[in-house]
Design a protein around this nucleic acid. Structure first.
Length: 868
RNA sequence: GCGGGCGUGGUGGAAUUGGUAGACACGCAGGUUUUAGGUACCUGUGACGCAAGUCGUGGGGGUUCAAGUCCCUCCGCCCGCACCA
């Protein structure tokens, strides 16, 4: 028999599954549903190993759940809008639409040979109007529901390219492509009111019990809820700024108000800007703070800097107590109110600031112990003369009416007094900010709004939707081509009919990925984004699988979107993803040539002595540590080449072997070779059996014995263990159990009674267990074993408990905790006979030197510890 | 700085409730068959030791009959978020 011909076999079964439409699904209320979804790919041009791992994991789950009787939805689509398409357009003169569609075609062709059990009829691409039309409607409904609004906000502006840059496109304060110094500009932008759901998004994290703890913590921190107080300080010497002349401050420590020694404003605070108008020194200080923001922030970060404005803030509790108002570089405009009161004794930043500017440090909280023990003065002296603020728990001191109250009680009391005096109130502050969705980009979904000089911003009427993205644009001038499109941009106002202009901004591409999981439920629905009955059946996604890099934004936006859609009547659901699994990254060794430049794995070989050489010229190569595969380090391995040389099954098996799926995986040649060798091993076992196999369906010819019985037992044990492992996402141990079982099959002695039957049963069980991992070879062996039906449509095997019980166990025997031998005992045997047997072990008797044991601890079926 | 994770043979990694540490692989060594070989199969493989045995899960300490697992402490690496008031 020839070596296993993977390429012939793999394409053969892919066609068979296709022909039988094995993976096509429709709603079926009679069966339990299971929705498996991998994070859909960005069509960058070629698939990478991360994709292979992602889709291997998802496909394993999909095939396994299908075998377990679930109606499985496993779709595929493309996250097709985004900046790289525009960059390609500028750099290579290819239209973004063409570039994207070609990439999708290429990547689809690369995915197909993986043999994924995907319902390809549901394929979607977010850059097509059939998809994005629906999100325009959703957006307008959000606007109507008060969940979307327009406001001015700061952006990074590249004056050379006439475009807005994302934070990661700003390098050392300059545009990544133009190199021009980036300006801060204020633009009117659309926002989605994610903060409306801040509390719910936070609290519901606790219901996501099939999410990784790590991701929930990251979201928890990102939302960043903190309870505190808003405090209004009356001001003296401040210019009129339009508000009521008071300074609003947020604090989590209203209990420390009696320890206040200054107030500080962010450099972008309106009051700071107003004061700077006739104070050039302050203006210079503010400009300096602005410069520090982007570039050398880390280096300078330790150094607290401030500028005394001369303005005074009046303490809310004490008549006549004036606090100096500074502008300080460590106060963020984006958080709270952009202003703080400083209590140096109980906040490290305030402490450092007070030291630098000679401000008072006054202890107003002390540990109960210090107060009780009469050590308060010493505690205060240490604190005020030291270098570290006291931020621990305790009771209020030196604080008038708060004295003696524990921190939490003092906070409540302070807030009550502030409210009484009309100087503040208790409040909850979130770190989470509303989601800005406007992008000054071409390759995205147009925002369906029209700007009219007379009527203001007018929504595009539902009847005029969708607003399709014009494809007759060029990229030969800087800026957004939509801005200079002659016919698309200029339209009549839907309200008054006079000439008006379209909104030329497009949506953030997270917009598309926030509801695509719902679109997959009814991808061809034309009237709406999805059919209500379909989403009610399929959602939530039972198992979502993807990279940890989306732990916060994508997942949070999707959770928000699901709530917003529900509030607008589209859905009745809060959480889109019931189960989440985050896979590890693919790593590979790195190589550097003598000159220091990175080398690709194909450029390097090992010589006889095991030293790395560059193939082209034989010069020596430095081996670097294994790192995440990346183009910049050139340590990438192309999946298509691997699949072409070893087949999809081998690549998939390697992805699942050894490393737990949530940990990083090292790609090695030895690993893929090992997977390939294993496939050949089971191929030989099945096609050149050591003993003649009975016909399929033959019943067992009496009880198997010896190695045959052992193999049958191993089969049942493997079914039980692999099932358990797959349920728990322990795919690497599932592979180990399958290999163990394979070894047991290899032990079958042809002469043992029932050997042929046991081998057939074993092989059938084996291919059913590996089918979700290596579906092609499993299907081929299944067919060669004489089965007419597809393995892809065969139910998961069940273990017979009768073969799982064992009648004897090996029990370890220790003397004083040290292993001295083992003893074979009947399962669940009584303590006395276990003790007797243990003491009879020669090595145990010898170690005891004839002395009687002091005590014997028997853990049934596990261990016996003899204490001498 | 805060939060999270990790640390086990030459390598990737196993190890229910605390109960024979190193499953399953890779690599390596020896052998058998075949071959031009890279194939396949068998045996061995934590360290030290001829052996009995001793020591071994990042270091140190503790709890326990028994600790990779629980507690304290220190060290190292990785990942998030970072002047969040």
């Amino acid at each position: 028999m020839a070596r296993y011909n993977f390429s012939e076999t793999e394409s053969k079964w892919q066609q068979a599954w296709d022909r039988d439409a094995c993976f096509k699904v429709v709603e079926d209320p009679a069966r339990p549903k299971y929705y498996v979804l991998e994070m859909f790919p960005y069509p960058s041009g070629r698939i990478h190993m991360g994709h292979v791992r992602n889709y291997t994991l998802g496909d394993l789950v999909a095939r396994y759940k299908r075998a377990r009787g679930f109606n499985v939805l496993h779709p595929m689509g493309w996250d097709a809008f985004g900046l790289p398409a525009e960059n390609a357009a500028i750099e290579n003169k290819v239209h973004p639409a063409l570039w994207t569609r070609q990439n999708i075609a290429t990547m689809r062709d690369q995915f197909k040979p993986m043999g994924l059990s995907i319902d390809w009829d549901r394929e979607i691409s977010t850059c097509e109007p059939e998809y994005y039309a629906h999100e325009q409607k959703m957006f307008l409904d959000f606007v109507r529901a008060g969940l979307a609004y327009r406001k001015e906000s700061w952006v990074n502006w590249d004056p050379m390219e006439n475009t807005v840059l994302a934070n990661e496109q700003v390098i050392d304060g300059r545009g990544w492509r133009s190199g021009a110094p980036v300006e801060r500009r204020k633009l009117a932008q659309w926002f989605l009111k994610i903060t409306h759901y801040a509390d719910d998004l936070l609290q519901s994290l606790e219901t996501l019990d099939r999410w990784p703890e790590k991701v929930r913590i990251m979201q928890h921190n990102w939302i960043g809820r903190s309870e505190g107080a808003r405090i209004f300080f009356d001001l003296r010497g401040a210019p009129e700024t339009g508000d009521d002349g008071r300074l609003e401050v947020f604090t989590t420590r209203p209990d420390t108000l009696y320890g206040a020694s200054f107030c500080a404003l962010s450099a972008q605070h309106p009051l700071a800007l107003a004061l700077a108008e006739d104070n050039p020194d302050l203006a210079a200080f503010i400009a300096e703070c602005g410069r520090m923001g982007t570039s050398e922030a880390d280096i300078e970060s330790a150094e607290k800097m401030g500028f005394d404005t001369g303005v005074k803030a009046m303490h809310p509790f004490v008549e006549g107590w004036e606090l100096p108002v500074y502008v300080a570089n460590f106060v963020l405009m984006e958080y709270g109110t952009g202003a703080i009161f400083g209590c140096p004794a109980h906040d490290q930043r305030d402490f450092d600031f007070a030291r630098k500017y000679g401000l008072a440090i006054k202890t107003v909280v002390a540990p109960q112990k210090a107060v009780d023990g009469g050590g308060l003065d010493a505690f205060a002296a240490d604190l005020e003369g030291g270098t570290e603020a006291y931020t621990g728990d305790g009771v209020a001191v030196n604080s008038q009416f708060l004295d003696g109250l524990a921190v939490d009680d003092a906070k409540r009391a302070a807030i009550a007094r502030l409210a009484e005096l009309d100087h503040g109130e208790g409040t909850v502050q979130f770190r989470l900010r509303d989601w800005g969705v406007s992008r000054q980009r071409y390759w995205g979904c147009p925002i369906p709004m029209i700007h009219c000089d007379a009527c203001g911003t007018v929504p595009v009427p539902d009847a005029d939707l969708p607003v399709t993205l014009p494809e007759d644009v060029t990229f030969d001038a800087p800026g957004n081509p939509l801005d200079r499109h002659p016919t698309w941009k200029n339209v009549d106002c839907p309200a008054c009919g006079r000439p008006a202009r379209r909104e030329t901004d497009t949506f953030d591409t997270f917009f598309e990925s926030s509801w695509y999981f719902a679109r997959f439920c009814s991808p061809h629905e034309e009237k709406a984004g999805f059919d209500r009955a379909a989403v009610d059946y399929w959602l939530p996604v039972d198992q979502y699988i993807g990279g940890i890099e989306h732990a916060v934004l994508h997942l949070l936006y999707s959770r928000f979107f699901t709530r917003a859609l529900s509030d607008c009547g589209y859905l009745d659901l809060k959480e889109p993803f019931a189960g989440l699994f985050t896979q590890g990254m693919i790593c590979h060794e790195t190589y550097r040539a003598a000159g220091g430049q990175w080398l690709q794995p194909e450029e390097v070989e090992k010589d006889q002595d095991g030293n790395l050489k560059r193939i082209s010229d034989g010069t020596s190569v430095t081996l670097g540590r294994s790192e995440k595969m990346s183009k910049s380090k050139k340590n990438v391995v192309d999946p298509s080449r691997i699949i072409a040389s070893y087949g999809a099954d081998a690549a998939r098996l390697f992805m699942l072997s050894d490393s737990p799926p949530d940990r990083d995986l090292d790609w090695t040649d030895a690993g893929i070779e090992g997977a390939w060798r294993y496939l050949n091993r089971i191929w030989r076992m099945a096609t050149e059996p050591v003993v003649e196999l009975p016909a399929p369906g033959d019943s067992a010819p009496g009880a198997p014995e010896g190695t045959a019985l052992a193999a049958v037992r191993a089969a049942h044990r493997a079914v039980a263990e692999v099932t358990d492992d797959l349920d728990k996402f322990r795919f690497n141990t599932a592979v180990a159990r399958i290999r163990e079982f394979t070894n047991a099959l290899g032990e079958i002695a042809p002469g043992d009674s029932g050997a042929g039957w046991a081998l057939r049963f074993g092989l059938e069980t084996l291919v059913r267990l590996v089918a979700p991992m290596t579906p092609h070879i499993a299907e081929e062996i299944w067919s060669r074993l004489g089965h007419a039906g597809l393995l892809a449509e065969t139910p998961w095997p069940e273990a017979d408990p009768a073969f799982l019980v064992v009648d004897s166990v090996t029990v370890a025997v220790q003397v004083n905790g040290k292993l001295r031998g083992t003893v074979e005992l009947p399962k669940d045997c009584d303590q006395e006979s276990a003790t007797t047997a243990a003491l009879a072990v020669p090595n145990v008797a010898r170690t005891l030197e004839g002395k009687a044991p002091r005590k014997v601890i028997v853990v049934p079926n596990r261990i016996i510890n003899v204490l001498a």
